[in-house]
Each structure stands twice: as C-alpha cells, then as structure tokens.
Simulated assay, not measured.
Amino acid sequence: MVLIGRRLSADELQAVLDDAAVVDELLYGDLEDDDGEMPEPELDLDKSWHGVHYLLTGTAWDISQGAGEAVLGGEEIGEDGGYGPARLFTPEAVRAVAAALDALDLDALRARFDPRAMAALDIYPSPGAELAKFDDLAASLTDLHRFYKGAAADGQAVLLVIT
C-alpha cells in the first residue's frame, strides 16, 4: 500500500465534482507516458504514509483537525480502489492543512516517535517489517508539507489515494 497525491487545477476540481469517474483518470492517467514509462505522481509517500499519519495524530487511524487531516482526511470521492476511495481536499481545506503543517514542531514529532508503539498499533508496513526510522518519516513529512504548501500557494485542490 502506497499513498499518492495530485494537485488539481480549478478546471480539474470542477471535472471531479461534476463526475467522480474522472478521479481515476486524474490519479492514474493512461498509466504510461509517451516513452512507455509510468508517470511520477506529484506526491508519493510510498509505504511511509501510515507512519507519517501516526506522527501527526498519535493514532493509527483517527483523523484530527489541521495537520492530522493531511494523510487520511478529505472527503471520499470516486470508487473504492481496494484500500478505500480517493479523498478530495478543496482549496480551502488545502490551505488549512498547509498552515497546520507550517506550524508543526519537529521536536514534538520526534518525541512522539516510538517504533515499538507503532508496531503494536500495526502501523503499516508492520508487523514483520523493519521498524520505522524517524529520519525516513521526517523526509516523507517534508515531502507532504511541500506538496500541500505548493497547492495552497497556487489555490489548488488535492486528491489523495492509497493504492
């Protein structure tokens, strides 16, 4: 399971609101570009998404306002792709999440980091996987923050999906 995200222009947001079937096309496209390569998503937290969510909320699945919405929040939209439907953040929600991520205290997140507690909560990709490392999660958190900050600055909506 990996989390990917895409920033949406105003026209793309309207297309999604008009027809949720557009979600898959926007997230996955034709699945190959002109060179036969898979396109890179604008956000790819790979398997660190669940550990990042834990750092932001202190929980496995609960969603809290602000930064705690960044990974599992948003409004469900479209078909269930096996790990739930995609989630849509309006431009207003994107700005709120971006502002909350701006205000995060990295030392507080480091203090929350507890690989054994995360394993006990089955934070993906546990059990049996190597215990999470804070620096890896911090790097993914930086990517997540950059993604939301860029979308907020451009007045864009966001689509996220776990696939």
Rank of each mutant, 00 (worst) to 15 (best):
S48T: 10
D44W: 08
R6L: 00
L88D: 04
A60S: 13
V23F: 02
G5T: 08
V22A: 14
D122E: 13
A15N: 08
A111Y: 05
A86L: 04
A103Q: 12
D46Q: 15
G29E: 08
E75L: 11
P39W: 09
M118V: 13
P115V: 05
G84W: 02
L106N: 05
A93E: 08
L56V: 03
S48V: 07
A93T: 02
Y83A: 11
L43Y: 06
A103N: 10
G51T: 07
L43A: 05
A67P: 03
A15M: 02
D19H: 05
A108R: 08
I63P: 04
G58I: 06
G73S: 00
L72K: 03
E32T: 14
A21R: 13
G36M: 03
P125M: 10
Q65Y: 05
E25P: 03
Q65R: 14
R7H: 00
E79F: 06
R6V: 00
D11L: 13
E42I: 05
G5H: 00
G29A: 12
V71Y: 06
Q65L: 08
G66V: 05
L26S: 11
R116E: 14
E42M: 11
E79G: 01
L8A: 04
P91F: 01
A117V: 10
R7Y: 11
S48H: 02
A120V: 04
D11T: 15
L109V: 07
D34H: 07
A21I: 11
R7F: 10
A119Q: 14
A103I: 07
R87P: 03
Y124T: 01
P115M: 12
V52E: 01
A100F: 01
P125F: 12
R112Q: 12
D107K: 05
R95D: 07
L45T: 00
T57N: 06
I63M: 09
V52P: 02
Y28T: 09
A100N: 05
D80C: 02
Y83V: 03
D35G: 10
L13A: 08
A60D: 11
P85G: 15
P91R: 07
Y54P: 01
E76S: 15
D24A: 14
T59S: 13
Y54I: 02
P91G: 04
L45S: 01
E92V: 07
D44T: 03
I63Q: 07
V94I: 10
Y83C: 08
L121R: 12
A100D: 02
A96L: 11
V71N: 00
M118S: 06
L88A: 11
P85C: 06
L109R: 01
L13R: 15
L43I: 11
D33P: 10
L31R: 15
L106E: 11
W49Y: 15
R6K: 14
D102N: 10
G82P: 02
R112D: 03
M38P: 12
L56T: 05
A120H: 07
A86S: 15
V22T: 15
A103K: 09
W49M: 03
L31E: 13
D35Q: 12
A103V: 02
S48D: 05
E25K: 14
